[in-house]
């Protein structure tokens, strides 16, 4: 097989599975370490705007933040949330997903991973605390505006208007968190266990968060996302 063909095969696996592992694709994984093939892949990385995070037993494809060719878009997220999803729902879903990442990887020491698992009710409680804190300050509106956007206050109200738990209803806080968790599960980032009561991070999420996502050097990139957004 030519080097280009091998590199394309590796790229195909990366696109299909999001990863190339020693356990599942041993031959290609060995080829992946070949400097000539790696050079071709560097070209792919540049043209298709992605990075490969390489560990001893696995490699992950990481689309650059603004890569709308390989990556997701807000539209995809909206489609996933359902035909009646509003922008508020997209925001809330993103906020909850990020909040989950924060609970898992909020450690300030050498090992950022803080939790083995998180219970869904705990996420609901922590979000409740956060949103209630915002809403309870609503008398001091000016100060609140300084700290939060008007839209976020609406988000907090939207959260607060949901019921706590009702097995048959979708409009509950618990269901909203589960929905965000399912979205992450679909992306192989977490797994939901124990009859929708508990979540755990996957090794993929651990690898990417610990070896790439949380790097201080990415802060510039993240700030640009918020600044450039139109």
């Amino acid at each position: 097989m030519s080097e280009l063909k091998t590199a394309l095969n590796i790229f195909r696996i990366l696109l299909k599975k999001g990863e190339l592992s020693k356990d599942n694709d041993l031959e290609l994984f060995i080829e992946f370490k070949n400097p000539d093939i790696r050079t071709i892949l560097y070209d792919f990385e540049e043209v298709f705007e992605f990075d490969i995070v390489e560990l001893s037993h696995i490699a992950y494809i990481i689309p650059n933040s603004s890569n709308d060719l390989l990556g997701w878009t807000s539209k995809n997220m909206r489609e996933w949330l359902g035909s009646d999803a509003r922008l508020v729902d997209v925001f809330l879903n993103s906020y909850i997903s990020m909040f989950i990442l924060h609970i898992f990887y909020g450690g300030k020491n050498r090992n950022p991973k803080q939790r083995d698992f998180i219970r869904i009710h705990e996420i609901v409680e922590k979000l409740d605390e956060r949103f209630i804190r915002i809403l309870s300050n609503s008398e001091d509106y000016e100060k609140m505006e300084e700290k939060y956007s008007i839209n976020f206050i609406k988000i907090a109200q939207e959260w607060d208007s949901k019921q706590g738990y009702d097995e048959n209803s979708r409009k509950t806080k618990t269901y909203t968190v589960i929905k965000a968790a399912r979205f992450m599960q679909k992306e192989d980032l977490i797994i939901i266990l124990d009859d929708n009561r508990e979540i755990r991070s996957t090794s993929k999420l651990d690898d990417i968060m610990i070896n790439y996502y949380l790097d201080q050097d990415r802060v510039k990139d993240i700030r640009e996302i918020f600044e450039d957004a139109i």
Binding site: N67, M98, I230
Partner: peptide
């Protein structure tokens, strides 16, 4: 860097949020 900034974000910027997740999501083939 993310949660506090999201809390101050104006609605017209919500459309950028997918970019935060792009690096951890699977490529959408």
């Amino acid at each position: 860097e993310i949660l506090c900034v999201m809390e101050k974000l104006s609605e017209d910027k919500y459309c950028c949020l997918w970019k935060l997740f792009n690096p951890i999501f699977k490529p959408d083939i």
